[in-house]
Design a protein around this nucleic acid. Structure first.
Length: 333
DNA sequence: CTGTGTTTAAATTATG
DNA sequence: CATAATTTAAACACAG
């Protein structure tokens, strides 16, 4: 069947031997900050450039600005931050342009969506913006759009961690904005962007019982107390809005109080060393540097998880994201 | 009609 | 190996 399509990533892997000598080493070397507590073992795709790394976070700026851990939005349109991928790194030495470009990024759609939303100014994006963001950063997704976009839509609707925020009014476009459920916490706190340990489930919903005991990310102290709604949440009439916490805030100033403050605190779930937040902000990116930082991202798997498996480690140079790195079948049958 | 959203169902894959 | 998370496909409803 459409094997051809898959061929893309089947063949091109991010872990070309040439490109990536030793994931582990890269991890450490390239991204020092990676050595976080949690991850005793973060190996895996250490090289995957930090997608969001593109911009230096505008650190400065207004007080509130600090909040924007994420840099500017992805380069719109052309020139994805990644295009050159591999080559960049070794630009001087060797132009490995081995397809890194065509390999499937080591992130689940959920994490991609989350990253996209997180890096947006208003912490919310339209479906199309999400598509764009992904395509801008990952050339891989410029192909088979229908396929993955359908998946994105599915992920958005299916996962409670994503909520729909109705458009304000002046926005002509169609569709609403998508944001992260405030209580979803740091879904990737384990450092794994391929799969969360537990799917975030919105407890509310009438019936109750429905099954799943609402798992959720635990936001540490979190105290799942406040509801998303920032006090002023007009009754959403939409059925789907069940989930929507609040109307279009737009701008940090309107973020739910708890959310807002959390962003400033280290306790904010996304502040975890491996959190998307950090990953994306990528402080050390020297704007001057060529770009693409192989950093954080690279290390999705936390010691807690895979590391535990002991020797798994690592990023096998000959594997690509799906086949190998994460599959023990290859490393440990 | 096309783009958005929802849902259902089945196939994959990562993890314990 | 069992289980749960994620990906893929597809059918449908709706709004612009």
């Amino acid at each position: 069947m459409e094997g051809q399509e898959h061929a893309d990533w089947t063949g091109g892997c991010y872990y070309e031997t040439e490109c990536y000598p030793a994931a582990a080493s890269i991890v450490t070397s390239v991204s020092g900050y990676m050595s976080a507590p949690v991850a005793g073992t973060c190996h895996v795709n250490a090289h995957y450039g930090n997608p969001v790394g593109f911009g230096p976070s505008q650190s400065s700026g207004a007080a509130g600005a600090s909040i924007s851990p994420f840099c500017a939005p992805p380069p719109q349109g052309n020139g994805s931050a990644y295009e050159p991928t591999c080559s960049i790194r070794t630009r001087e030495s060797k132009p490995y342009r081995r397809s890194y470009t065509h390999a499937k990024p080591p992130y689940s759609y959920i994490s991609l969506i989350t990253m996209a939303i997180q890096q947006s100014d208003n912490k919310m994006l339209t479906l199309n913006e999400i598509y764009q963001w992904i395509m801008d950063l990952f050339p891989f997704y410029r192909q088979n759009q229908q396929r993955w976009q359908n998946s994105i839509r599915h992920s958005l609707s299916f996962n409670d961690c994503f909520i729909k925020v109705p458009r304000s009014s002046d926005k002509p476009g169609k569709g609403s904005f998508w944001a992260l459920h405030p209580d979803s916490g740091n879904m990737f706190e384990n450092g794994c962007y391929l799969r969360r340990q537990k799917r975030f489930k919105c407890k509310n919903r009438s019936g109750g019982g429905d099954g799943e005991p609402a798992a959720n990310a635990g936001s540490e102290g979190g105290s799942g107390s406040d509801p998303p709604t920032p006090s002023s949440s007009p009754p959403s009439t939409d059925p789907k809005d069940l989930k929507a916490p609040s109307p279009p805030p737009l701008s940090h100033h309107h973020l739910p109080i708890h959310l807002k403050s959390d962003l400033y605190h280290p306790s904010y779930p996304f502040n975890h060393p491996f959190s998307i937040n950090n990953i994306m902000s990528e402080p050390q990116l020297h704007k001057t540097e060529p770009m693409v930082q192989y950093g954080a991202f690279g290390c999705p798997v936390s010691g807690t998880l895979m590391g535990a498996k002991s020797g798994l480690d690592v990023s096998h140079p000959d594997t690509n994201y799906y086949h190998g790195l994460y599959s023990r079948s290859i490393m440990n049958p």
